[in-house]
Amino acid sequence: MINEILQAIIFPGVLFTIAMGFLFDWLDRKTAARMQGRIGPKITGPSGILQPLADFLKLLFKEEIIPSHADRVIFLFAPALYFLAPLLSMLFIPIIGPTPLAGFEFDLLAILFLLAYAAFVVTILSYSSASSFTTIATGRLVLQYVSYEIPLVLAIITAALYSRSLSVEGIVASQSTLWNILVMPFAFGVYIIALMAELEKPPFDIPSAKTEIVAGWLTEFSGRALSFLKLTKEVGYVFGSALAVSLFLGGGLGPEVAAVPPPVLYFVYFMVKLLLVGFLIFVLKTALARIKIGQATELFWKILTPVSLAQIAFVLVLIQGGVLVAT
C-alpha cells in the first residue's frame, strides 16, 4: 500500500510528471533557441536546465492580481481544476511497466473525458477574467477546440479499434509485434497536429497569440495562478506526447536486453520515444508561422477529419479482411 502511494506521488506519479514538464519546457526552449541560432537558457543549472523551475518558483512568489470585474471564485479555483486534468491523465499511461498506475478497463474513455474537461475548464477560466482580450481568446479557444476535437478523437479511436481495446494498457500490449504507427501513419500524423492545436503550439497558438491579443486567455493571470497554468501547459505537453507513444509507438515495448531488468528497459524505451515525439513537436512548432483561426478550422474540418475517417475505413478493411490483426 505504502509502495503504491509513493509510486503515485513520486515516481512515476505526480512529481515525476511535473519534473518531466519542466524538462520538456527546457528542451523546447533550448532546441528552439539552437535552431534559431541563439543560445537559450544558460545560467541556471548545467546548460540552464533548471531555468523552467526557477521561472516557476519566481512566479509563485509574485503578487497575484485579481481584476475587479472578474468572477473571483472561478478565477481562483479554475487554475487548480485545470492543473488536475493532465496530471490525472498521466496516471493512465504505463511508464515503468505494462501496467499503468491507475488503469482500468475503459480508461481511454476517461482520458477522452479529461481532454474535454480541460478544454471546458480553460474556457470558463478564460471567460471569468472578462477583459476584451480574454473574450476574443475565449471565442478562439472554443472554435479551436471544436475544430481539433473531432480529428483528435478519431485518431485515438483508430488505435482503439485496431487494438480492440478501450484501455491504454490493452492498446500498448497489442503492439508487441507491430507498432500501430506502421498500420495507421495518417492517424499518428493527425494526432500530432491535433495535439499541437490542443497545446496551443505554433502554428495553432491562436488563442494565446501574443502579438494580437497580448497573452490570450492568460492575459489577466498573475502570480501563483499563472505559474500553475504555465506548468499545466507543459504537463499537458508531456501527457500528449506520452499518449502518442502509448497509442502509436508501442509504449515502452522494444527489443529485450538480457542484462537490464525489464522495468528499467521499459522506462528507457518509453523515455526515448517520448523525447522523440516531443522533439518532433519542437521542430514543427519552430518551423511554422501562426495561421488564422478560420484557416485552422478549415484545416481540421476539411482536410484532417476526412483523412482520419479514411484511416478508420482502411483499418476496418484490414481487420475485416483479416490481413493484419493485432495480437
Partner: peptide
C-alpha cells in the same frame, strides 16, 4: 513581419 505572423524562426534568423 515574421514575428507578427508568429514565425519566430524567421524573425531570429533575419535579425541575426
Amino acid at each position: 513581419m515574421g514575428h507578427w505572423a508568429g514565425f519566430e524562426t524567421l524573425f531570429m534568423w533575419v535579425w541575426r
